[in-house]
């Protein structure tokens, strides 16, 4: 790892004030430290944001659940308040990586990184999340712009993520047996206004699977997905799974998600 200056910010203003072209924010470090070790990334200044109070805390209202960006996966997995409002978020967080990754990795770091096989982006998209940053509020649909890319500007800090509470929802991941990231992950959310289905791990980035949404809008049951065929022409194909296999995993994971929706 190349050397850098480590700073621990205590307020949002302090963190954004320290940010420059040659800096990066550090949250759980579960992605950033490995990429610095592999020399895929190097920075002059590393700004730790975990001690900023504003980036912590869980707020539940009648319509939404707002989670601070520095909240660890283990905290979300175990939160009784979140479990009451959106149990699928606890399931999702409790299956990220392994226990030690969940003891460090955070919501903000996960969505800022926007790994095409990460779990949280699917929840953001299916639950119409609003990303609160140091500068503005961004809708999830506009936040995830491409593989490892987001709408965040240089120095913009994620403060919290606000998820809207659906009638019911569920997340099912078929994990890559080595990395435990999603080979395919499907988040199904039934809102008053309609069903939203976000898929991770299958393409270059997170996306909504409209064919499944339309079928579930008509009939919210596993059976409704029996005759759906997913176009595999732009799905990932690699040593772990062919595009056709991923297409089949999307349907089987979506069926399981529908069966377990609560």
């Amino acid at each position: 790892m190349k050397s850098f200056n480590y700073h621990s910010a205590s307020t949002v203003a302090e963190a954004t004030g320290l940010a420059s072209k040659a800096s990066a924010y550090l949250s759980g470090g579960m992605t950033m430290i490995p990429s610095m070790k592999m020399r895929l990334a190097s920075y002059k200044d590393v700004i730790d944001v975990k001690k900023i109070k504003q980036l912590h805390g869980i707020k539940v209202s009648s319509k939404s659940v707002t989670i601070g960006a520095a909240t660890k996966h283990a905290e979300v997995a175990q939160s009784k308040e979140i479990k009451k409002a959106i149990p699928a978020l606890c399931t999702l967080a409790g299956k990220i990586g392994d226990a030690q990754v969940r003891n460090r990795g955070t919501l903000g770091g996960s969505i800022a990184n926007n790994d095409p096989t990460a779990c949280y982006p699917s929840a953001c998209l299916a639950l119409n999340a609003i990303i609160h940053t140091s500068e503005r509020k961004i809708e999830a649909a506009k936040f995830f712009t491409g593989m490892f890319e987001t709408a965040l500007k240089k120095g913009e800090l994620i403060v919290a993520v606000e998820f809207s509470i659906p009638e019911k929802s569920s997340y099912v991941k078929f994990p890559n047996p080595a990395s435990r990231y999603a080979m395919v992950g499907v988040f199904v959310a039934k809102h008053k206004a309609g069903v939203q289905v976000a898929v991770t791990g299958a393409k270059a980035g997170i996306y909504r699977e409209k064919a499944i949404e339309q079928a579930l809008d008509k009939n919210f049951s596993e059976k409704a997905l029996d005759n759906i065929i997913i176009d595999s022409s732009d799905l990932n194909s690699d040593i772990h799974a062919s595009a056709d296999y991923r297409a089949s995993l999307i349907i089987s994971s979506a069926k399981q998600a529908v069966a377990h929706c609560k």
Partner: peptide, 20 residues
Amino acid sequence: VVHVDGKSVKSCTLLAADID
């Protein structure tokens, strides 16, 4: 794996300065 403030973490993926 070691414990930091009672919780298990991977010490190869953690800065010593981070847990002062």
